[in-house]
Amino acid sequence: MRAIWKGAVSFGLVNVPIRLYSATENHDVQFRQVHREDGGRIKYQRICSIDGEVVSYDDIAKGYETEDGDMVVLTDEDFKDLPSRSSKEIAVEKFVPADQIDPMLLDKCYYLEPDKASTKPYVLLRDALEKENRMAVVSVSIRTRMTMAVLRVRDGVIVMQTMLWPDEIRKPDFAHLDDEGKATKQELAMADLLIEQLAGDYEPDEYEDDYALALQSLVKAKVEGGEVRVAEESKDESGEVVDLLAALKKSVDKAKAARGESTSDEKPAAKKAAAKKTTAKKTTAKKTAKKAS
């Protein structure tokens, strides 16, 4: 694994330098959109919905759409005024009972590895969390934005898991659940019996993604059967750059035309005309010299 962030966990006067690693990875099979006929990849252009022009990255800004459908354009200067933090500190705010953290609040998960010189305080924090059955609520700045997270222990390693803000959890509004009435004693007894029949411990190895496995087998069979379409090289491998150059050229020509100057398309013709005039002058000069002699 490769560390994605370096910093330190601080609690009280204790400071534990650590490295952060992504604890999970997505194994979903990724597809590309291609042309059915030849397997060529589909490319997309950034087109303005108003003037239909191709827009370069330099001219793209962030926009916030209001409830009325209006657009508020935000500049880099606007974002500079927003609160941001670039601290490399994972600051422990408090230690709370583990059962007080609703799993719905938990988001992305990371492993924390200590530097060799800080192994002892790392182990101290790990063992204390396990012994007290608590989680550490921390604040951390990831990509300049401060967020809340928890530190917990899994398989002998301290794990940091970022948290959603409380207002990001939707409240269920299912009124009909209250209208159905309560279950009878007989129904509850039957439900208890069913649960008892299916009771057991969670064993991760008992479950697998059968869709992903079947899809991988399908692709492998097609490859082994020679059903592979080798796409020809794109005629325009740098299409995005060419589009940008074309847009820049168009802008330059438009600016020159507004000033009454010749455009890039007119330059070759102008050069040819100038060359003809120069040749004509040289020919005239030669004829005059011959007459004089």
Rank of each mutant, 00 (worst) to 15 (best):
L74R: 13
I60L: 09
L20N: 04
D68P: 03
K254H: 08
L244V: 14
F31A: 14
D253G: 07
K249P: 04
D243G: 09
Q197I: 14
P17Q: 00
L177A: 14
A183L: 15
G39I: 01
I169D: 01
A273F: 07
C109A: 14
D265K: 14
S139E: 07
M1E: 12
E93R: 02
T147L: 05
I50H: 13
V153Y: 00
M146K: 12
Y111I: 01
K94Y: 08
N15C: 08
K272D: 15
D76V: 09
I4F: 08
I18Q: 02
I4H: 08
K272A: 10
G260C: 14
E130M: 08
T144S: 04
L74G: 08
V242F: 00
S10A: 05
E261P: 08
D59T: 11
G226E: 03
K131N: 07
V219Q: 02
Q30P: 02
L13C: 01
I47C: 07
T184Y: 01
L106G: 00
A98K: 03
T144D: 07
K131G: 01
K131T: 06
A231E: 04
K277R: 14
S141A: 14
V14F: 07
D68F: 14
V9R: 00
C48L: 04
S87D: 15
A189L: 10
P97Y: 00
S49K: 04
I60W: 12
A221N: 10
L198M: 12
V54R: 12
A117G: 11
K116A: 09
K250I: 15
S84E: 07
K185Q: 09
A280W: 11
G12Q: 10
Q216R: 13
Y202L: 04
A275R: 06
D99V: 06
N26G: 06
F95I: 05
H35Q: 13
E187T: 01
A274G: 07
V140G: 05
L151D: 03
T279C: 02
A289S: 15
K276N: 09
T288R: 06
V73Y: 02
D68N: 11
K256A: 13
K235Q: 13
L124M: 11
E130L: 13
E180Q: 09
L193Q: 14
L164C: 07
M1S: 13
Y64R: 15
K171A: 08
G69V: 06
M1Q: 09
M160T: 03
K281L: 10
Y207S: 11
E132W: 01
G63Y: 01
V230G: 12
C48G: 08
K171D: 08
A23I: 02
I50T: 15
I101R: 05
E168K: 10
G239I: 04
V73S: 00
D38T: 05
S264N: 08
G181K: 03
V123K: 05
A117H: 13
T263S: 15
P83F: 00
V138P: 00
K286T: 15
I60V: 11
G12R: 02
D155F: 15
G69A: 10
K222I: 01
L218V: 08
K291D: 03
E130N: 15
D115V: 10
G69I: 06
V123C: 04
P268G: 00
S234M: 15
Y21A: 10
D210W: 09
A273E: 12
M71C: 11
L194M: 13
E227Q: 14
N15R: 06
A23N: 09
V9A: 01
T147C: 12
V54T: 14
A128Q: 00
V138Q: 03
M146I: 05
L215N: 04
